[in-house]
């Protein structure tokens, strides 16, 4: 594997400024992505996954600001207030599949025309050729027959079709890095597999690197090289995907993996993690998981743990041995 670092975020902090309070949605995030790597991000609802990814190219909502940190892409500093540079990077080099698929498609243009626009502006493909290119990419995300879906407007597509149109748009510009926020959440298992195979192909043949957020643990093992697990705005465990799924170390990760519904499970209720979902505006001192942790010790209440090496390429923030 090529081990050049494509993206490196250090000590990234993003705050949200509400009317009468400030919340630290991303706290001291360190993230490294090598070229051609596929990284999965999992974590609790509302823990800051989307905010972290939007921070990388400063696509944050108005109320949110990066207050600290550095981001290197391809060895170069991404300057957060240099809109010109950011615009060049977004789309052409880093493209997004947003969590909200409908908001990122323009309701006034057909899906095909929107993707065609993408080809003409980013890829400088002559207008006459562009139509065939669009049909090709629609076909690749399984919107078949492509001639039919070319002229569909976003509101005429089902949830999963919308999501695939978004993916088609994101890969059309041949980016180096794809950041995909729950890109297959509205797809059935079979279509999801086909989309993941397509992304795997682009990863192998076109050196596409991918960061994707997902709640679907079962796709990670075969798709991702590495995983990052987030809790309360922080990364609390990270490492090789297979290693972490088999040998999770952080009590949150362990508890989370036990909540997976299984066909053979005949219990009336599913396992859950006791206690409240972490509230970013009201976090405890020390380890942020301490109110819910079954192993909590004195030290956990006082000081936040730092990353500790579990094994080669596996790190966790927890005091447990």
């Amino acid at each position: 594997m090529n081990s050049n670092i494509l993206l490196k975020a250090s000590k990234l902090n993003t705050r949200i400024f509400y009317k009468d309070s400030v919340v630290n949605a991303v706290c001291d995030l360190d993230l490294e992505l090598r070229e051609k790597e596929i990284l999965a991000i999992i974590g609790e609802s509302g823990c800051g996954k989307t905010m972290s990814m939007l921070s990388l190219t400063n696509l944050l909502p108005q109320s949110a600001k990066i207050t600290e940190g550095q981001i290197l892409f391809n060895g170069k500093d991404i300057e957060m207030d240099n809109e010109d540079q950011l615009r060049k990077i977004r789309g052409a080099q880093i493209s997004y599949v947003f969590q909200d698929a409908t908001a990122s498609l323009n309701p006034l243009f057909s899906v095909g025309e929107q993707i065609r626009e993408m080809f003409i502006t980013h890829e400088k493909i002559p207008s006459a050729e562009s139509k065939n290119k669009v049909l090709e990419v629609l076909e690749s995300v399984n919107l078949k027959p492509a001639e039919k879906y070319y002229s569909y407007y976003p509101h005429q597509l089902s949830g999963g079709m919308n999501q695939r149109a978004m993916i088609a748009m994101a890969i059309a510009s041949k980016p180096k890095l794809l950041i995909a926020d729950e890109p297959t959440s509205s797809l059935d298992r079979i279509t999801e597999m086909q989309i993941l195979n397509l992304l795997r192909d682009l990863n192998k043949k076109m050196n596409l690197s991918i960061i994707f957020i997902t709640h679907n643990i079962s796709i990670i093992e075969n798709f991702a090289d590495r995983i990052v697990i987030m809790y309360a705005g922080r990364i609390i465990e990270k490492g090789d995907a297979k290693e972490i799924l088999r040998n999770p170390k952080h009590p949150y990760t362990k508890a989370l993996l036990k909540c997976l519904p299984k066909k053979e499970n005949k219990d009336k209720f599913l396992n859950t993690i006791e206690g409240n979902v972490a509230d970013l505006s009201d976090l405890p001192d020390g380890c942020k998981f301490n109110p819910r942790c079954p192993y909590v010790m004195d030290v956990c209440l006082k000081e936040e743990p730092e990353f500790k090496k579990v094994s080669e390429g596996h790190f966790t923030k927890c005091y447990l041995e």
């Binding site: 999992i42 974590g43 609790e44 609802s45 969590q99 729950e182 959440s185 509205s186 709640h215 643990i217 508890a255 989370l256 993996l257 909540c259 997976l260 519904p261 599913l270 396992n271 859950t272 993690i273 979902v277």
Partner: peptide
Amino acid sequence: ASLDLSVQAQ
């Protein structure tokens, strides 16, 4: 579909 495993279970 947009919930983590633990919140989904709840």
